[in-house]
């Protein structure tokens, strides 16, 4: 059993790492990480805009943003992926590669979840910061940019990292639209060997666990540092947001 696993890893480590690259598309862990990093990096600005729109009093900002967040949170990710995959070519007439489809879907989905985290971070600051900013003469944009967002985003960093861990796990769904990520690579190996599914998928589970556990651990450490750094001031809301952030791998 252990010997099998070692053999499989030895024979297929390159496929697990980068897929068929450079002879084919980039895949494996590399694709999984690139997909999840890109999705969170792009979802982050989207989420800040969504959060600000959801906090806005202007109905033209509030309602569309709220609809996006509720729809994205209210349907399964797989359904969203299939919709994008099949609908975008019909609407635009262009065939969109699986990787791009997956990335766009993840950005919308992660953006919606992150926006609620960001919104919570802003609300947790309390009224006093915004009032102080206004009293000094800052407009809404200036107050957000220099006073509210720097604090709120810093405080929700652990939650953002947790969401990144979720994104890594969600990239597995790319498998259904043939995105050559890590799960796809593992399945290719399994299809070649045919007789060793347990060993192959054990390796897959182990890789995901190690990656996600490390990041969750990093989130916990980060959270502790932030709580320590901010302790001594009105720390209660900060501590609350930070605690809510921990997600099990």
């Amino acid at each position: 059993m252990i010997a099998d696993i070692i053999t499989i890893v030895r024979d297929n480590w390159l496929l697990l790492l980068v897929g068929q690259y450079p002879n084919g598309p980039l895949g494996g862990i590399a694709a999984t990480l690139i997909l999840s990093v890109l999705s969170i990096a792009l979802a982050f600005p989207v989420s800040v805009l969504l959060a600000l729109a959801r906090l806005s009093k202007a109905p033209l900002l509030y309602w569309p943003a709220t609809a996006v967040v509720f729809i994205a949170r209210g349907v399964p990710l797989l359904m969203l992926i299939l919709w994008t995959y099949f609908m975008v070519p019909i609407i635009t007439g262009y065939n969109v590669p699986g990787f791009a489809t997956m990335l766009v879907t993840l950005v919308i989905y992660e953006g919606a979840f992150l926006s609620e985290i960001v919104r919570g971070g802003i609300l947790a600051l309390g009224r006093g910061q915004m009032e102080a900013a206004k009293a000094l003469g800052h407009g809404g944009a200036s107050a957000m940019l220099y006073i509210i967002l720097p604090q709120a985003l810093f405080n929700v960093l652990p939650s953002i990292l947790s969401q990144f861990v979720s994104a890594i796990k969600e990239t597995t769904l790319g498998y259904v639209i043939n995105v050559p990520e890590l799960t796809f690579a593992a399945n290719q190996i399994n299809n070649q060997l045919l007789t060793k599914p347990f060993q192959v998928f054990f390796i897959l589970a182990l890789i995901y666990y190690v990656v996600c556990w490390s990041l969750t651990r990093a989130a916990t450490l980060l959270e502790r540092r932030i709580v320590t750094k901010r302790s001594g001031l009105s720390g209660a809301p900060l501590a609350l947001t930070a605690t809510a952030a921990t997600v099990e791998p």
Partner: peptide, 24 residues
Amino acid sequence: RGKQLNRLRSRIGFVFQSFNLFPH
């Protein structure tokens, strides 16, 4: 409104009970 209100506010010093310093 808007900029004029901000300009006026910047000319009125205001000190809060809860200080409201910017902790960052």
